[in-house]
């Protein structure tokens, strides 16, 4: 693997990381803490939305986020041919 390839692989990883971290931040610190009062004005079913994000929604998104990252990373590994056999 050439050094150029290696740093391109690493950059692709970091871009993916950044995207995931944005979602991570938004669904917990954003919707569940900083914007909780504004979102609580909206209701879905019996939940105030901000409260739902803080006690339910953020956790579901965390789980999905890890599987999404694993899936995308496998893809990137294949593309740069650094996957394990």
């Amino acid at each position: 693997m050439t050094p150029e390839n290696r740093s391109a692989y690493w950059r692709a990883n970091l871009r993916l990381l950044l995207g995931c971290m944005l979602v991570w931040f938004l669904c917990s610190y954003g919707f569940g803490i900083l914007l909780v009062d504004q979102l609580n004005a909206i209701r879905i079913g019996g939940f105030k939305l901000g409260f739902w994000f803080a006690q339910q929604g953020s956790i579901y998104i965390f789980v999905a986020l890890i599987f999404f990252y694993a899936w995308r990373m496998n893809h990137i590994d294949q593309k740069f041919d650094v996957h394990e056999d």
């Binding site: 803080a54 953020s58 956790i59 965390f62």
Partner: peptide, 12 residues
């Protein structure tokens, strides 16, 4: 909620 988010978000 601090415990719910705090003890799960770390896995990300």
């Amino acid at each position: 909620s601090v415990y719910l988010m705090g003890w799960t978000g770390g896995y990300v």
